[in-house]
Computed example of a mutant assay.
Amino acid sequence: MGYINDQIGYPNDILSSRSIIKRDNYALIPPAGLVRNIIPGFENCDVTILASPKLGATFVDYLVTLHDGGRNQQGFGGENIETLVYVIEGKVTASADSSDYELTSGGYLYCPAGAMLRLENANGGKPSKLFLYKRVYNRIKGYEAHVVSNNVNNLEKIHYEGMSDVILQDLLPKDLGFDMNIHILSFKPGASHGYIETHIQEHGAYVLSGAGVYNLDNEWIPVKKGDYIFMAAYVPQAGYAVGQEEFSYIYSKDCNRDVDL
């Protein structure tokens, strides 16, 4: 199995962790203590499962490092599973069934249900680091999702709720064919949400840069680059940036559907 930070053997200090796990509510998962999971189809890869239904999520998030020769040619997703891959660092060749896409840092590929996602490291022998997502697609009559590939550097930078120092980027179209979206939210130093949110949508968020303090169920918790946050439905949530670096994270959101009874 092994730990992704390669801290093995005898400890150098007392055992401690910043992890906070409150199933069906929220979780903070820092890099220290994350393990490598063996997942069929992934070759020469370190794969770590972050959020899953065992935590209370309706989706699964992964952190994946493709080493030299790293790939998944067996396919990921398909049938009723939608998937998305986002390149944190490096370069990969990703495919949605028979179409190939060259993705560099900030690049992403969404595969709708029925399309298999395949991955291969293309970073000249150096590792590539990915954020990977999957979810059961919630289909509605008359609408379908489709393949989407782009790079965040090409996306519109939206002033989040009119605030010029908080920038939102939508990775997927605002279209009823999509039952979810992936966003990147970026805070300039000292910027924050305008209020503490409470809503039905759940989130899985991976911190890409900087540091902040996040309100999770009215507990203010320090977070930083490399941390993962799970927020269940109706958990009060908000954050603000601290330090001198931009605080940003990529996160998923279920949307565009009514509630099933």
Rank of each mutant, 00 (worst) to 15 (best):
S164W: 07
Y86P: 04
E202V: 07
E89D: 14
L185H: 05
I229H: 04
A57T: 08
Y110T: 05
Y62S: 05
V166S: 11
Y101W: 06
V213T: 13
N121G: 09
N12A: 06
S209M: 03
L132C: 09
A233P: 09
D46Y: 05
G210S: 04
Y10V: 13
G162K: 06
T48Q: 03
S209Y: 05
E245I: 02
N44I: 03
L28Q: 08
W220A: 10
P222T: 09
L117H: 03
I140V: 14
E79N: 14
K253W: 00
V35G: 03
T48H: 05
Q201E: 11
V148M: 03
V148G: 05
F131S: 06
Q201G: 02
A205V: 01
Y160S: 13
E161Q: 15
T104H: 08
R71I: 01
V60H: 12
H193M: 10
D61M: 14
Y108P: 01
S252K: 03
L63Y: 12
Y234E: 06
E102S: 14
I196M: 09
L109N: 02
Y249H: 10
S98L: 14
D227R: 05
K188G: 04
F131W: 14
D260F: 08
G2W: 03
A233F: 00
D46P: 00
P53Y: 08
R71Y: 05
G2Q: 11
Y160K: 14
Y3K: 13
N154K: 10
E245F: 02
N218S: 12
K174C: 03
S105I: 00
L132G: 00
R71L: 11
E43I: 15
G56I: 03
I221Y: 07
Y62V: 01
K157V: 00
G162Q: 07
E82A: 10
